[in-house]
Structures are given as C-alpha cells and as structure tokens.
C-alpha cells in the first residue's frame, strides 16, 4: 500500500515535469527534462517584499496565511491556520512549502480527476483542511494568498519538482502501524500541546496549539487524514522544535490521530460505504471500526 502511494506520488511528479514542454510543443518535447536547480531553493526574505500595492497584497497574504482564523466563519470552519501544516509561514522545506508548490500548477490531480490551477488547489485546502467554504478565485483573500505564494516562489523554476517539496516520502515502518502503540507515543510526545483529547488549546481566545481531531480539526477529505501523509508530515516536523520521532513512532502516532472522529468528508454521498469506496481508496481508517464506533459514520449510525 505504501509502495502504491509512492508510485502515485512519483507519477504525479513525472507528469507535472512533462507539462511545460508538452504545453509549449504539443508533445514534441515529451522527453524534455528541465535543468536541475543549482541547489536547494531559498525563498526571498521578508525584507525584500516591495512597497506599493503588490507588496501590500503579499503582506496581506502572509498575514492570512499565519492567522487564517481571521477568515473564520467566512471561509474557515474549524480551528486551523495554514501555518499549522506549512511551517515557518510556508517557507520550511519538507513541510509543503509554497515556493515548491507554486511552479507545479496547473497539474492533474487524481483526487478530483482533472487539471487543477494553483487557486483550485488552495481552495481544496479551505474545503478539507480548514473544513470551510473556499474563497472565490477573485476574492481578496484568495488574491492575497496567491500573491504570497507567488512571492515565495520568486526565482524558482516552473514545472520542476524542487527538493523539499510537499512532505518527504517516509520509509516503510518495520512493523505495520498500530493505533494502540500510537496512543502511547501521542500521550508521551504530543498531548502536552495538542491535549489528550486532541482538541488543541487556545489562549486569550486564540488558537495556540492546533486541534488534531474532533469538530475543530481537518475533515475526512483532507490529505492529512491519510496515515501515510500524516506520518510524512510528522517525521521531519514534529514535535515542533524537536522533531526526532522514529519512523515507527511517526507511523503509529499518525494512525492513532487519524483513528479519531473528525468532521465529515464534504463529498459524503449520504452513504458511508459508498463514500468510502468512491473517495477513500487510500491509506486511511475512514469507515472502519475504531474505539468502538465506525469512523465517519453520521451521528446515530
């Protein structure tokens, strides 16, 4: 299953690599390989953000990226901020940095089976990870967020899968992941910030530690509910400031977190088995028995 997930990821990257040439030359350039970038890409510093309307829009985007809760109620339906998954304001390698994403769109995504623009990709975050309503393409928040993406990618090549992109593929665990072992890891390493109940924590009414499950967390459509994706995020990034879990621990705790209830998949068809079959053919626990209940079942089922 891991192998399958990896080969899908690789396939997407290969397809995306071929995109610019194919678009320019209608297939004649299919064997074209863009030159490798000279080294790791570094996004421009904050101090280089220009003055004027464009700079203002970039700064606005950065602000919304860090404090996405400002869009709570309008576009955000839970307690998450963009920066919870995209660490260091979307700059950190191996934490789905914006500078590595921007040049990879438009791209075909198996998730919705069509070619997505960068805007549609960001809207996907709002729909699933933020459990909200996506800002329209031309809305000010979207223009601001897109401007911030553009800024961080300034000087990055287009159509090149840069090192540090996404969450790095994680090695297969020695033992199959275990929700029970994951609980032990969670209580020891994660609960101090995210709470034993996974609900995160607020201070002065502001979210400080993001909720990992429950009604204020990402929904069952978010990429993070996949155990392999969560493990790939956790391994290089968590615990924040001291990311040193073993590969096995990352898998186990990813399974535990994703064995807990969270908001329904917005693509829910009204029938759990059908939704699971149609949208959850990947490494997740949606529709399975966990902690004495069926994960993703509507209340009362």
């Amino acid at each position: 299953m891991i192998r399958k997930a990896r080969s899908i990821a690789l396939g997407t990257a290969v397809a995306a690599l071929a995109l610019p040439a194919a678009a320019a030359d209608d297939g004649a350039g299919k064997s074209y390989t863009p030159p490798r970038p000279p080294g790791d890409f570094t996004p421009p510093p904050d101090s280089a953000i220009p003055d004027g309307p464009m700079g203002d829009m970039i700064r606005r985007g950065r602000e919304l990226f860090m404090h996405t809760q400002k869009l709570s109620g309008d576009y955000v339906g839970n307690g998450m901020n963009c920066v919870n998954c995209h660490l260091d304001r979307g700059r950190k390698a191996s934490s789905a940095p914006l500078w590595a994403a921007f040049g990879m769109f438009p791209a075909y995504r198996g998730k919705n089976d069509h070619v997505n623009t960068m805007i549609e990709r960001i809207q996907g975050c709002f729909r699933y990870s933020m459990d909200g309503t996506p800002p329209p393409a031309d809305s000010k928040p979207m223009v601001a967020l897109l401007s911030y993406h553009f800024w961080l990618a300034k000087g990055a090549p287009v159509g090149v899968a840069l090192p540090g992109r996404g969450f790095p593929a994680i090695d297969k665990p020695d033992k199959p992941y275990s929700v029970a072992r994951g609980k032990t890891v969670y209580e020891r390493e994660c609960a101090i910030c995210h709470g034993s109940d996974g609900g995160g924590r607020k201070a002065e009414g502001t979210w400080v530690f993001p909720p990992l499950w429950g009604s204020e967390s990402y929904n069952f459509g978010a990429g993070m509910h996949r155990i392999n994706t969560a493990a790939a995020f956790i391994k290089p990034n968590m615990p924040l400031g001291r990311p040193d879990l073993t590969t096995q621990e990352a898998w186990d705790v990813a399974a535990y977190i994703n064995s807990k209830p969270r908001p329904q998949d917005p693509r829910f068809t009204g029938e759990l088995a059908q939704t699971k079959k149609r949208f959850h053919d990947h490494m997740c626990l949606y529709g399975t028995e966990q902690h004495g209940r069926t994960l993703g079942a509507p209340d009362g089922e």
């Binding site: 201070a203 502001t206 400080v208 924040l240 400031g241």
Partner: peptide, 24 residues
C-alpha cells in the same frame, strides 16, 4: 514571532501564547 527555522526553532509565541503571555 517567527523563530529560527534553520535550527528548527519555532516562534516562541507558538507555544508561549499570543504575545508570549502564556500558553497554559
């Protein structure tokens, strides 16, 4: 407010709460 990510140091406020006024 930002941290020092080259050494995986997060913003102090990320744990010590808004304005560093406490996070529990």
């Amino acid at each position: 407010t930002i941290g020092k990510w080259s050494k995986t140091v997060p913003a102090c406020n990320a744990c010590h709460g808004p304005g560093g006024r406490g996070g529990g």
